[in-house]
Write a protein that binds this DNA or RNA. Structure first.
Lengths: 268, 268
DNA sequence: CCAATAGTGTCTATTAGACAGTATGAA
DNA sequence: TTCATACTGTCTAATAGACACTATTGG
C-alpha cells in the first residue's frame, strides 16, 4: 500500500504541502526553580506570546542535529558546546490546524541543561529567556501537591500554538526520567554534592525528600555516582561539615530505580 | 528565530520538499511467538523486501488517525474496529537519505493487537502478513538469553529502509511497557486466564517466569486484573483444574511494576 | 492411576522509609 | 556556643523470589 503512493509522488510538490519543524523543550534549574527556555514571538500568529525555540529542519540535517542547532542558537552556546546537555526525542505533534497557516508537523526534543548564562543580547536570539515553569499557568496534570505554585504576577503568559501541551508532556517525561536514569546529573555541574543532586529531584518532582535516606539510596545504586575524593571548600552558609564531591558514574539506567513518593493516586 | 522563517515560507512550495509518512509497528502473539505485521514491497527501492505498513499522512488527518487507518487497511479490520488494539507513538525517524528518493520523515506508531485473522486476499492488502519476529535477523540489542532464536530457513529477509531499527526500538518499548503498564492484556482476548497472561510476558520478554509467583504478583497489583467470576470450560489439554477468568482492570499504570528478571547486565 | 496445571502457603534475603544520633564547621 | 547540615546506624514493614504443597481434571 505505502509505496505505490510514494512512486506516484515522485514529484513531491504535487502533494499537499507539509512543513516539518524541530522544537526544543529545554529545562534547567535556577535558584531552586525549574526553568524553561522560551522565545518571544515577534510576528503573528501569537505575536508577543512565548513559544518553544524551534524552526524548520534544514535540508540534509538530521533531526537531533537540528534540535541541537536550535538549542545552541537560542542559548548562545556554540553548537559544539552542548556536551553536558542531554537531548532526546520527546514526541511529534501534527494535529491539523495546530498552526493556522499551514500543515506543520513538529518533532519535539527534550533537553536537560546545567545552569547556563543568559543568552547575550548580541547573540542571534531576538528575545530568548529562561522562564520559571511555575510562572506559566500550565495545565499541569501532575500538579505539585507539596509546594504551593508560586505564580508571579505579571509574568503569566499563554504559550503559542500547542506548546503548553508539549511542555506538559516534557515535564511528565522529565519527572519520570529522573526515576530510572541518572539524568538528574545533567542539571548540575560536572562535580556536585549529594545535597545538590537531591535539590534537583526535589525541584523537578515538586516534593521534599528525606535527606538521609536519599543519601544512602543514591550511593547504593551501582554506577550512579562516582566519588571524586574531595570535598567542598566550605561548609554550608551557616556552617556544617564539608560535603563530599561526586561525578556521574557509568550507569545509563538506575537499578533499582528511585521512585517518586506516593504515586498511587496517579495510577488510574 | 523560528517564526520569521515561517512567514518567509508562507509559500511552502518554495521550501525543500519533505514528505511525512506514518509507519506502524504492530505486534501480536501467535502460537506462542511474537509476530509483526509486514507488507511486501512491490516496487523499488527494496522491491521484494518486507516493510512496515505505512504511507503518507492524509491532509486534515491527525497522526494517530493515520496510523489507525494504515493498520486497519492492512489487517482487514474496519477502521472503527480497532477497539481492543493499543496504539501509541513510538518515535520519528528523519535521517537524510533513509529513503533514497527524497527527504522522508516517518512518524512511527507502536500497536499491540490480539491475534487477528490473516488479512483476506480480497482486501486492500497487496501482500500483508503477520511474520514471526524471531524469523527476521534483527539486530536485537536485548537478545533473548533464555530461548534459542528459532530462525526459520527461507524466511529470513532484510527489512526495507531503516525499518529494522524502528522494529528494534518498538520491541524495546514493548518489553519495557509490559513492566509498568497493563498493556499485556491487549495481546489476549477480553477474558483470559492468568496463564495466558503469563504466556504474553514470557513471549515478549523471551524468558520463563515462575508460574506461582507470577500468579500472586499480578493479583496483588491494584487495578490490574478484575475477576470475571467464571472459569474456563475445560482444564488444560492434558488435564488440570479449570482456571479462573479475568479481564483488564481500570489501572493505567502498574504499581508496583512487574520488573523483568535480571536486568543488571543491560544497565550500563 | 498418572501427569500436568491452578492456586496458595511459607521462608528468606533485600529494600524502602521512618527516625535517631554523631560529627563538622561557619556565624 | 549555636545550629544547620553531612553522613551513618537501626528498626520495621513490605516485597521479590525460591520452593513446597494441595487440589483438580483430562487422558
Amino acid at each position: 500500500m505505502t509505496e505505490e503512493d510514494f512512486l506516484a509522488a515522485y514529484d513531491p510538490r504535487a502533494y499537499p504541502p507539509v512543513a516539518v519543524t524541530v522544537d526544543v523543550v529545554a529545562f534547567t534549574i535556577r535558584d531552586g526553580r525549574l526553568h524553561l527556555l522560551l522565545v518571544r514571538r515577534a510576528a503573528p500568529p501569537y505575536a508577543g506570546h512565548w513559544a518553544l525555540p524551534g524552526g524548520f529542519v534544514h535540508p540534509d540535517e538530521d533531526l537531533p542535529t537540528g534540535a541541537g542547532r536550535e538549542l545552541a542558537e537560542e542559548t548562545g552556546v556554540q553548537a559544539g558546546g552542548l556536551g553536558r546537555v542531554h537531548l532526546e526525542q520527546l514526541g511529534t505533534y501534527g494535529t491539523p490546524g495546530r498552526d493556522p497557516r499551514m500543515r506543520v508537523v513538529s518533532v519535539a526534543y527534550l533537553a536537560f541543561a546545567p545552569d547556563l548564562p543568559d543568552p547575550a543580547a548580541g547573540s542571534d536570539a531576538d528575545e530568548a529567556a529562561w522562564v520559571a515553569v511555575d510562572s506559566l499557568g500550565l495545565p499541569d496534570a501532575a500538579a505539585l501537591p507539596g509546594r504551593p505554585v508560586r505564580q508571579r504576577p505579571g509574568t503569566t503568559r499563554k504559550l503559542a500554538f500547542d506548546h503548553a501541551r508539549i511542555v506538559a508532556d516534557g515535564l511528565d517525561r522529565a519527572r519520570s526520567k529522573l526515576e530510572y536514569t541518572p539524568l538528574a546529573t545533567r542539571f548540575v555541574g560536572p562535580e556536585f554534592t549529594i545535597a545538590e543532586l537531591r535539590a534537583v529531584y526535589e525541584t523537578v518532582w515538586g516534593d521534599t525528600l528525606h535527606a538521609g535516606n536519599f543519601h544512602r539510596k543514591v550511593l547504593s545504586v551501582p554506577g550512579f555516582l562516582e566519588s571524586v575524593g574531595a570535598t567542598t571548600d566550605r561548609g554550608g552558609a551557616r556552617g556544617g561539615p564539608r560535603a563530599r564531591l561526586y561525578r556521574a558514574g557509568d550507569a545509563r539506567l538506575l537499578h533499582p530505580a528511585l521512585l517518586r513518593p506516593s504515586r498511587e493516586e496517579a495510577v488510574r
